[in-house]
Amino acid sequence: MHQARRQLTIAAVALLLGVLVVVQLRGQQEANALTGLSAQDLTVLVGNLDAHNEQLRKEVAALEAQEADINAAQSRGDTSVDGIRRDLARVRAWAGLDPVMGEGVTITVSGPIGGPGVEELLNELLTAGAEAVAVEDVRVVPGSVVAGPPGGLSIEDSPINDPFEIRAIGSREGLTGSLTRIGGIVAQLSATYPSAVVTVTPVDALVLPATTRSLQPAYGTPRL
């Protein structure tokens, strides 16, 4: 009896100790990350998180509707083939496995620019909400990298000419505004690569090809 109470006391203290250690470590991590941000950074972060959470909420709603559809179809005895087909088309278009069309921008790049500069531009396009991007006729997917020195650019082992075109599908106004704003990526690139000329043109309709890469993992296997 006495023994049991003793053990209980030790267990309780140990538990409290564990919780405190975790709280302490976490608190410190968080403090480090957020205290480094200025009020302006925090405002940008709030805006970004807010917009992204809205997207995630829509995705949750869409997935809930999709699940309800499947369950309804199955309870009627259907196999919900149409639902699965729609899901397939959606994922393939997003992943770059199918050609896609829509409004967006065409960016013409001429003059000497290095691979890192073009990668900055692609990163900025995604930040601005581009949904599909192609460099010349190569759809940009995970693993495609624009590399090389000015005058010797390539993507997926195919050389890139000068001038070349980047096409991106997304909001015409949104993409153009983000890229060409004061201090934006076009301005930054003209500072880093003064002889390069980057022109952004809004376009009503673009068609981007599918990737020619196999995006199936060659080394990774699904984790269950």
């Binding site: 992204h52 997207q55 829509k58 995705e59 393939r92 278009a93 599909a132 997304g170």
Partner: peptide, 12 residues
């Protein structure tokens, strides 16, 4: 994250 496209749609 989201895989929903708002501006792009599958092209034939």
């Amino acid at each position: 994250g989201t895989v929903t496209l708002r501006f792009a749609r599958p092209a034939a």
